[in-house]
Amino acid sequence: MTQSRYSLTIAGLVALVAVLFLASLLTGPAAMGAGQSLAALFGRGDEMLVLIMRELRLPRAILGLFVGAALGMSGAVMQGFLRNPLAEPGLIGTSASASLGAVLAIHTGLSAAWALALPVAALAGAALSVVLVLMLAGPRGGALALILAGIAISALAGACTSLVLNLSPNPFAANEIVFWMLGSLADRSMLHVWIAAPLMALGFAALWPTRRALEALTLGEDAAASVGVHMGRLRLMLIAGIAALIGGATAVAGSVGFVGLVVPHVLRRAVDASPARLVPASALGGAAVVLAADIAVRVIAPGRDLKLGVLTALVGAPFFLHLILKTRREGL
C-alpha cells in the first residue's frame, strides 16, 4: 500500500475523532445552542453553562477519547504480538484485576469515603496483575506462557470479584458494584482526567516504539529476533504499556468490552494488514467508537443512564459475528 493512502486513512480517522469529540461536548440534557456551549467552554456566558461545559462535558469527552484510544491501541498491539485476530487487551489479566481493585474499594466503603479510592484501588489491582504475570510467564520472551499466565490471573480475579459480590452486605452494595462494572463515563470530573492522563502518556510511550517489532513478528518469533527484535524487552514494554493503558481506562470508566477486539479487526484491511500501521489507526478508531457510543447512550435513553459498556458489547458482538461470516465467505 502506498504511503499516501495510509496518510489519507489516518487523516480521515483524525477528522472523525475531532467531529465526534465536538459532538460529545455538545450532547447533554442541558438545552444549549452549539455556539453558546462553545463560548461557555472558553469561560464566556452564563456561569452555570461554563460550569457544565468545563466540569461535566469536557472531562467526559476527554475521557471518551482516552479510554477509546487506550482500548484500540492496546488491542492492536496485543493482536500484533500474538499474531492472532482474536486477541484482546484483557488477555494479560489487567482489566479483571483492575476491576477487582475497584470492586473492593466499593465493597469496603472506601470509595464513598474518598473520591480517589476507586481509581487508586483499580490501579493497584492492575499493578499487582503485572507483577504476577511477569513472575508466572518466566524470563524468556515466549507468547504462550504469557497468555496462560494472563488467563489464570483473569480467572482468579474474576472469581474474587464474584466472591465480593457474593458476600456483599446488602443488595444496594451489590447493585453499585454491578453498575460500576458495566462501564460508564457519566458524571466523571477533571480529577479523573488528571488520574488517567499520566497513565495514558506512559502507556503510549511504551507501546509506540513496539511497532517495528510487531511488524517483524508477522514472520514469527525466530525471524523477528533475527532482524534485531529483543523479544524479552518487547514483552516487558508490551505488558507495562498495556497495563498502564487498560489499568487507567478501567480505573476511570469501568470495563468497556469489545472495543479492543473489534476495532483492530475492522481497520486491518484499511492499513493493508500492517501490524505497525494498525497501532495508530486502531487508537484513533477506538477513540471514535467510544466517543460515538458515549454520545449514543445519552441520545438513545437520556433519562435511563444506559451504560457505555453495555452498548459497546451490544453493538460490538453482532458486528463481530458479521466479520466472522465475511471472513468465512472469503475463505481465509
Binding site: T218, A223, V227, G228, D272, S274
Partner: peptide, 24 residues
Amino acid sequence: AYMPQGRQIAWPMPVEALVALGRI
C-alpha cells in the same frame, strides 16, 4: 539474516511489505 524453517506469515500483507521487513 535468518530464514526459519516454519514459514509463518501471520497477516495478509502485500509481498512487497513482507520483503521490506528485512530492512528492520
